[in-house]
Write a protein that binds this DNA or RNA. Structure first.
Lengths: 255, 255
DNA sequence: AACTTTATATCGCTT
DNA sequence: AAGCGATGTAAAGTT
């Protein structure tokens, strides 16, 4: 990646550099004192303040304030970004067609511009997604219960989809709902609706909620409806993949 | 805001600047070639690639790749961030206590460091939030229906809180559920549960779902349960505030 | 294109 | 700390 830094003397100089960088579809980071307006699905206004603005080659624009993980303003994929000097201000406009929305930045000072070209992409993997938990249970159903046999995956049932549809060692139908994060009342209600769909047809069905943990209220609700909870250890599951064990050791060493 | 830019010659120089900036709780933006690992609620790995890393004074850390609105990795508010040279790499570690998670960046090159101190905060307003829609209806209930009288706001009812609780011109109790975005089946079910709570007590109650639009499935469900839908025009509502009209004109002129 | 579901959701507020 | 609801949620998958 080639990185250039500009400390502009004037707004016109800043405008010229940003215009050229936009033209070349660079990855631009701007530190500036500016106001911001957004209008589209909602509407917002930010008074004069210091911001760091990032424009990516794909047209996404992100305006950060000095705190918080979330940007103050943004535009996921714009159809057009323009830069101009108006009334002695550097004005950036990012337009989006669907939904129709606009973000306007009015900069009174530009402290620095960082322009990056030809970035190395690298690759990215997410592990232990809900899908991975499901895959792990499919390949080893004993994680949930001894003697369980998976019959179907994401089976369509009246209110939606059950994550897993199985039979226990006694021949009972078992509906399994998987949550990768702590299960709340919603998850219980969802599982209940699946189980009810079977019970309504006169079929006896067990319902098991599989999650790393569950809230107290959700557990009460679960027992009330005669459903079951099965704790699953994500860390264990993650480690069960031999390929990842080495990397994990390295990470835990840090902690 | 004071902004300094460093183009480090060596990783050790980069480390020293970042360490000092972290110490001073600066707002740091780093362009670097690095690998990343995350582990906590999930787990991820990113191979060597060019990234822009932002560390804010409150400890939030955001790692951006060259495309997409979302960062590759992040940590909302960390309890500790450290920087060190290990095996000829600049290693940044961001720890979070609750939930317990860790983000590790291993940089093999640091292209540029942007360090900002004492940023001007500025102020930020969000308009046309659900709360604003509610406020507008409270101050003018005829938006929903002629002759409506608001009795209570966020009234607790068995399954939760109704947004607005009113009486129509015929004396019927009216439960109002507000959605700022297109209403889906969830919104209908929510409204239904509130209305049912009244009907269970033998009180006749109408249920009105107020939203800018509604999905087809949700509308069918609504009619099935004998509930009502009232369209509300967010733009109109937004414009009805005289203070904002001038600004809005200016913005739409841009489009 | 509309709709549904997920997310390392985040964030703010209340209990 | 846990629960609950809104978000300019965004993004991905499905109908």
């Amino acid at each position: 990646m080639d990185v250039g830094v500009v400390i502009p003397e004037t707004l016109e100089e800043a405008r010229a550099h940003i215009a050229e960088a936009l033209e070349r579809r660079s990855w631009i980071t701007i530190a500036a004192l500016c106001k911001a307006w957004y209008e589209g699905r909602g509407a917002s206004e930010a008074t004069l303040g210091d911001r760091i603005v990032m424009v990516k080659p794909d047209g996404s624009i992100i305006v950060h304030g000095h705190r918080g993980f979330k940007p103050l303003n943004w535009q996921p994929e714009t159809s057009a970004i323009t830069v101009a000097i108006e009334n002695s201000m550097l004005v950036l406009r990012a337009l989006r067609r669907t939904p129709r929305e606009i973000l306007v930045l009015e900069c009174s000072s530009v402290y620095a511009i960082l322009i990056a070209l030809n970035p190395e992409e690298g690759q990215f993997w997410m592990y232990v997604s809900e899908e991975e938990v499901r895959e792990a249970i499919i390949s080893d159903p004993s994680i949930v219960e001894e003697g369980l046999k998976i019959i179907d995956v994401e089976k369509p049932v009246e209110p939606g989809f059950v994550d897993l549809y199985a039979r226990d060692k006694n021949g009972n139908i078992v509906v399994i709902e998987i949550k990768r994060v702590k299960a709340g009342e919603d998850a219980v209600k969802q599982l209940l609706s699946y189980v009810e769909a079977f019970r309504a047809k006169g079929i006896r069905a067990r319902g098991i909620l599989v999650a790393p943990s569950i809230t107290e209220n959700a557990l009460k609700l679960l027992y009330l409806y005669n459903l079951e909870f099965k704790h699953v250890d994500l860390k264990k599951l993650y480690l069960s993949s031999a390929k990842r064990r080495a990397r994990f050791k390295q990470l835990t060493d840090y902690i």
